[in-house]
């Protein structure tokens, strides 16, 4: 055996395998929010005590611990709270593969008060300042599945 061969890393066997978890998620009262997304509406529950609006909806306010019964359409516009770009290929649990995400992720505070995450059409982070007014751009109705990314992206409102 030559010195070069001796220096080679010994063989260690590894097995690579994808593991798919198939799940059934009972939406229950959240169905109303899912149906809302499909119709191009953002529906939130609103606490009668503290006024907090929640997407995805909660049935009990985590702060006040009271039952939440009021549903409020959050409108189509909201203010930017935070924005960031995912600068590395991040794992997508829908496919099991790492993926490059071009659009920035934004947190939007809706006119109705709810906070939600989404994609932004503006890729220049310097232009994404807190308080910027954003508007929802929806996917075509036939592509919607009842989820956050039925909003294709959030677009800054031209003044």
């Amino acid at each position: 055996m030559t010195t070069a061969e001796q220096k080679q890393e010994p063989e260690f066997i590894q097995y690579k395998y994808p593991r798919t978890q198939h799940y059934w998620h009972a939406l229950g009262y959240q169905t109303r929010a899912v149906e809302g997304f499909k119709q191009g509406k953002i529906m939130a529950t609103k606490c009668s005590k503290c006024g907090r609006a929640m997407v995805p909806p909660r049935i009990v306010c985590p702060e006040c611990y009271v039952e939440v019964t009021e549903w409020v359409d959050q409108g189509q516009r909201g203010k930017l709270v935070a924005a960031f770009k995912i600068g590395y290929p991040m794992y997508d649990r829908r496919t099991g593969e790492s993926q490059v995400w071009d659009k920035p992720v934004v947190a939007v505070q809706m006119e109705g008060g709810a906070l939600l995450d989404g994609w932004c059409s503006e890729t220049d982070l310097d232009k994404l300042k807190p308080g910027l007014l954003l508007e929802a751009v929806w996917r075509p109705e036939e592509e919607r599945i009842g989820a956050y990314d039925d909003v294709l992206h959030w677009k800054p409102v031209e003044k």
Partner: peptide, 21 residues
Amino acid sequence: DKAVKPVVIEADSISTFQVTV
């Protein structure tokens, strides 16, 4: 909520692993 019939969503969540022997 009688106005909306609750639905059940069916989907996959996939992870890739490698086992070291």
